[in-house]
C-alpha cells in the first residue's frame, strides 16, 4: 500500500527529528529555551490542526487541556511515578475533550468557539475557588528534570503526534474527516457517523495538549491557575497553526518556527504592545494569508505549472 513518496516523507521526517534531537549538544542555553518553546507549540499547533483543519471548528480549549495537564503533574508528582503522569494527563485530556465534544460538536461552529473559550476560564475559576476553600495558593513542582529532558520529551510527543496524524490521514477516519470538511450533509448521507469522527479527533488534540502541559509543569516550578490556564496560549496556537496552514500535516510547524522568533523579538522590544500585535496577526492571517504558508506555496506552484503548460 505504501508508495515511494510516503517512504521518502517518512525518512525525511525521521531525519529531521534526529537532527532536532541533537540541538542540546550544539546550541547554547538560549537556543535550547527557544527549542523547548518551538517543540511545545509544534505539538499544540499540529494536534490543533489535526482536528480544526478538516472540521473548520476553531477550538480555543488548548489552554484548558494544557492547564489540566500541568495540574495533573502538579498534584500527582508526589504520589505517582513521574512517567505515569504524562499518559494519565493524556487520558484526562481525552476524557474532557470527549465530554465537551459530545455536548457541542453537533452544533454550529460559533457555539463551539464560545464553549471552548469559556472552558479554560471555567476550570480556572473552579481551581481558584478550590484553592481558596482549601487555603492553598499555588503548587510547587520540584523535580530533578532539566530543560534538556523536557525538550526531548516534547520531541517524542511531537513525533507521536505526527505519527498519529499520518496514520489518521491514511485511515477511513481521515477520509471521513476530509468529506466532513467538504460537505457535512453529504458525509452524513454517505453513512459517516460525523459526530463520532469529530469527537475522536477532538480527543486526540485534547490528549496531546494535556500531555504537553504535564511535560512542561516541572519547567514552571511554581504553578497557579492564572499561569496554567492562560487564554493567550489558546490564541497563539490558533494563530501559529493558521499561519502555517492546516491543509497539510507539516503546515503548522511552518507557522510555529517563524512566529516563535517573531514573538520573542516582539516581547523583547514591545512588551506592552503584545496584545495589539496579536490582534494585527489575526487580521493579517484572515486578509493576507487566508490559507497560510501552505496555501501560498500551493498557489505559487499551480501558477508555475500553469505557466509551464502554456509556454
Amino acid at each position: 500500500m505504501m508508495t515511494t513518496t510516503e517512504y521518502r516523507n517518512l525518512a525525511i521526517g525521521a531525519a529531521l527529528f534526529i537532527l532536532a534531537a541533537c540541538l542540546p549538544f550544539v546550541g547554547g542555553a538560549y537556543l535550547l529555551t527557544i527549542g523547548v518553546t518551538i517543540a511545545m507549540y509544534t505539538v499544540l499547533a499540529t494536534s490543533w490542526a489535526l482536528f480544526s483543519g478538516p472540521t473548520h471548528y476553531i477550538s480555543l480549549a488548548t489552554a484548558a487541556f494544557f492547564g489540566l495537564g500541568t495540574y495533573t503533574t502538579g498534584l500527582g508528582f508526589e504520589h505517582l511515578d513521574y512517567w505515569l503522569l504524562v499518559p494519565l494527563a493524556a487520558i484526562l485530556g481525552a476524557a474532557l475533550a470527549a465530554i465537551v465534544g459530545v455536548a457541542t460538536l453537533r452544533l454550529s461552529g460559533v457555539y463551539f468557539v464560545i464553549f471552548t473559550l469559556g472552558l479554560a476560564e471555567l476550570i480556572r475559576q473552579l481551581v481558584t475557588w478550590g484553592q481558596n476553600v482549601s487555603g492553598q495558593k499555588g503548587l510547587y513542582v520540584l523535580t530533578d528534570l532539566t530543560e534538556v529532558h523536557i525538550y526531548w520529551q516534547l520531541l517524542v510527543l511531537a513525533a507521536l503526534v505526527y505519527l498519529t496524524g499520518w496514520l489518521i490521514g491514511r485511515s477511513r477516519l481521515g477520509f471521513a474527516l476530509r468529506i466532513i470538511g467538504d460537505d457535512e450533509e453529504v458525509a452524513r448521507h454517505s453513512g459517516i457517523n460525523t459526530a463520532r469522527a469529530k469527537v475522536l479527533l477532538f480527543m486526540v488534540s485534547g490528549a496531546a495538549a494535556a500531555a504537553t502541559g504535564a511535560i512542561l509543569a516541572p519547567r514552571y516550578i511554581y504553578i497557579e491557575p492564572a499561569l496554567a490556564f492562560t487564554p493567550m496560549l489558546s490564541f497563539q496556537v490558533v494563530i501559529m497553526a493558521l499561519l502555517g496552514g492546516t491543509g497539510r500535516l507539516w503546515g503548522p510547524v511552518v507557522g510555529v518556527i517563524p512566529f516563535t522568533f517573531l514573538w520573542e523579538a516582539i516581547s523583547a522590544s514591545f512588551p506592552n504592545q503584545t496584545t495589539l500585535l496579536l490582534g494585527l496577526c489575526f487580521l493579517a492571517i484572515v486578509f493576507i494569508l487566508p490559507k497560510g504558508f501552505v496555501g501560498l506555496l500551493t498557489t505559487i506552484r499551480t501558477r508555475m505549472n500553469a505557466r509551464e503548460a502554456f509556454s
Partner: peptide, 13 residues
C-alpha cells in the same frame, strides 16, 4: 470569528 477576535485584541492593545 478570527477577524473580530483580531479587532478585540487590537482594541484591548
Amino acid at each position: 470569528i478570527l477577524t473580530t477576535f483580531g479587532l478585540a485584541f487590537f482594541l484591548v492593545g
